[in-house]
């Protein structure tokens, strides 16, 4: 019972971890601080905005997570409720908080939370640097944070070069003709498949693919071959040992001479077949004929009265 209890607790812990992994795949993807003539909210107004991106291939719900620009929440001495009081809790009960795989969600940093679930209770400083953070539902676990440099040009955003890829680095978007502010859409448009283009360019005849893929297939089955060669050797040894014990033989050489434990599977197949045949042949319903004609009963010792027990043995 104790073991089952431990197992259930481990499972619950693992499940908890799974749900945490869902929100862990969220990143802050793009932030626009000084919005004069850029993207408008539902009220037709220009405000700062923060874009989140779901890096996973699963739906992630951001409800109950927290967004903040208040650095005091980094103080580890604060309790969870104290931290929560300094942050904007993303409300539950709105289907739009469910982020589809590899999609974006935009929040307006306008200090008007009553305008809707996606309007935050804080705004961003258009002059100084801004620190923006996303916290998990426990108000303690930091999911992602970014520091936006001061004096960002008007209507320019600060964004990850490649959506959701933090290693790709941050850059200012919209300040040159080749970079664009991209609210609720990809920062970098992928209109080609690099892998396929690479194969088309470097391997037009398919030789490289054939060599690489065949090598991998061979390696995979070679690994299996080696593993089962070992298992097979161990299996043979165990079978021989058991057979020797059964036959009362202790000398390995003698066992080898007598082929103990190395019987072919064909012998077992033949025995199994014979047993199957025998069992299939057993039938409890005999062929009988129902007739109204007078039948002639042949003599049988089984029905002969002279053999029954009523006659006294001499």
């Amino acid at each position: 019972m104790k073991k089952i209890g431990i197992l259930i607790i481990s499972l619950i812990a693992a499940l908890g971890n799974i749900s945490a992994q869902g929100t862990k795949s969220l990143v802050i993807n793009e932030v626009l601080v000084n919005n004069k003539a850029n993207f408008q909210d539902d009220y037709g107004l220009h405000h700062a905005w923060i874009e989140l991106f779901n890096t996973s291939f699963a739906i992630v719900d951001v409800r109950n997570c927290y967004l903040t620009c208040d650095k005091r929440v980094l103080d580890k001495s604060l309790s969870a409720p104290e931290r929560a009081a300094m942050m904007y809790p993303i409300p539950k009960g709105d289907v739009l908080t469910q982020m589809p795989p590899r999609q974006h969600l935009l929040f307006w940093a306008d200090s008007y939370p009553k305008r809707g679930n996606f309007h935050l209770n804080f705004s961003l400083d258009t002059v100084g640097p801004n620190w923006v953070a996303l916290y998990d539902a426990n108000a303690i676990t930091l999911i992602d944070s970014v520091t936006i440099p001061a004096n960002l040009p008007v209507d320019c955003s600060y964004a990850l070069k490649v959506d959701g890829v933090k290693d790709s680095g941050w850059q200012i978007m919209g300040d040159t003709p080749t970079t664009f502010v991209t609210p609720s859409t990809n920062n970098m448009t992928l209109d080609t498949n690099e892998k396929i283009d690479g194969f088309k360019e470097k391997d037009p005849h398919g030789f490289a693919m054939a060599i690489m893929a065949m090598s991998i297939v061979f390696s995979g089955l070679c690994v299996l071959f080696v593993a089962f060669r070992l298992i097979s050797a161990i299996g043979k040894k165990i079978a021989q040992r058991n057979a020797m014990r059964h036959h009362g033989i202790e000398d390995v050489k003698e066992a080898k001479e007598k082929n103990v434990g190395t019987e072919s599977a064909e012998i077992y197949a033949a025995i199994s077949m014979a047993l199957h045949e025998f069992q299939s042949d057993v039938h409890d319903v005999e062929n009988t004929i129902l007739t109204i004609n007078k039948t002639k009963r042949n003599y049988s010792p089984w029905s002969s009265k002279i053999y029954n027990m009523r006659s006294m043995p001499k």
């Binding site: 398919g206 030789f207 693919m209 054939a210 893929a213 065949m214 061979f218 089955l221 071959f225 097979s232």
Partner: peptide, 27 residues
């Protein structure tokens, strides 16, 4: 297969049909 694991390599070799055909298809 378990009793004669080397037969796995025969199964691997036949997959060349896939990659040989890949070259034909590209052509």
């Amino acid at each position: 297969l378990i009793s004669n694991p080397k037969l796995m390599l025969v199964g691997a070799a036949a997959q060349f049909g896939i990659f040989g055909a890949y070259m034909v298809t590209l052509a």
